[in-house]
Structure formats: structure tokens, C-alpha cells
């Protein structure tokens, strides 16, 4: 079957099998920034935004996404034009091996889009789907607080 998805604001058509999941299709189509790990919705590595909300792409049937918008971490920012969140992750040591970072940054982006001034508790709750075996999470929370402060400052200008 053929489906249409706006990936990072670009309209794309994909030929897919009815039982394929979004993660597999995105990676097959070259969106390698979306990471697969547990394939059971546990680890959060594969998190993407579906119409602005974070979902586990490994558990999302791609046919269900037909006609919707998907944002990967590259749609948030890339090496040439990094998002404040991505810069904050680097600055605060919130990424080490980097495997969880795309999912973690994506979850954080969804949070800050809705709540520009989150508490530490709200950040932990919004990122409770994203496992990180390197950083111990503290730096990630600090990075999101840092990014939120910068974004608020930019917004005031």
C-alpha cells in the first residue's frame, strides 16, 4: 500500500506493507537518525514526534500514520543549524555514546513546545520514556532546563 507522510515538513509517499512499523520504514527510507533498540516500546531510542507528540516509532503501525506529520531529531535541528536543545545537550555533557540522544531530544522538544518553563519533575516525567545508560540522566535534565531558559530569553527579545 502507498501512504503519505510529511516527514520533517517534506511530503513523502512510501510503499509499505500493512504490518510494518514506522521505525522500520523511516530507517529504510534513509532517516537513520531514528534509532532502533528494544523494538518493544521500552527504551525510547526510536522516539519521533507524530503531529507534535512523542511516540515510540517501533510500536506505531506505519499505515496508521498515513496523512500525518512526523518529525525526527533532524527535523528539530541538524549539524549546520542545531536547535538550542541540541546545543544544550552537548554543552551540559548530556550525551556520551549518543545512541539515546535523538529520542531524548525529541521528547524534550515536545515538552518545551507545550511548556516553556518546566520544573525538574516535569522534565523527568516527560522524558521517562528515554533510557540512557551513560549519563545518569542528571545532565539531560540540566540540559533541558538550560535550553528552556535560553529559549525563554530568545522569546523575550
Amino acid at each position: 500500500m502507498t501512504i503519505s507522510i510529511a516527514v520533517n515538513t517534506v511530503e513523502r509517499s512510501f510503499d509499505v506493507q500493512p504490518d510494518e512499523v514506522l521505525l522500520d520504514v523511516l530507517r529504510r527510507e534513509g532517516y537513520l537518525e531514528v534509532k532502533g533498540s528494544c523494538h518493544a516500546g521500552d527504551c525510547g531510542a526510536c522516539t519521533v514526534l507524530l503531529d507534535g507528540r512523542p511516540v515510540a516509532s517501533c510500536l506505531t503501525l506505519v499505515a496508521k500514520v498515513d496523512g500525518h506529520a512526523v518529525t525526527t531529531v533532524r527535523g528539530i535541528g541538524d549539524q549546520a543549524h542545531p536547535h538550542v536543545l541540541q546545543e544544550a545537550f552537548v554543552k551540559n555533557g548530556a550525551t556520551q555514546c549518543g545512541y539515546c540522544a535523538p529520542g531524548a531530544i525529541t521528547s524534550a522538544k515536545a515538552l518545551l513546545d507545550e511548556n516553556p518553563d518546566p520544573t525538574e519533575e516535569e522534565i523527568r516525567l516527560a522524558m521517562d520514556s528515554n533510557y540512557c545508560r551513560c549519563t545518569g540522566y542528571e545532565q539531560q535534565v540540566e540540559a533541558v532546563l538550560d535550553a528552556a531558559a535560553q529559549l525563554r530569553k530568545e522569546h523575550k527579545k
Binding site: G41, G44, S107
Partner: peptide
């Protein structure tokens, strides 16, 4: 409803 499972599953 806001604390069961985890964030990206609660949206699914």
C-alpha cells in the same frame, strides 16, 4: 493516566 507506563506510550 499521566503516570502509567511512560511518556511516549501514554500518547499511544
Amino acid at each position: 493516566a499521566g503516570h502509567i507506563a511512560h511518556n511516549n506510550l501514554r500518547d499511544m
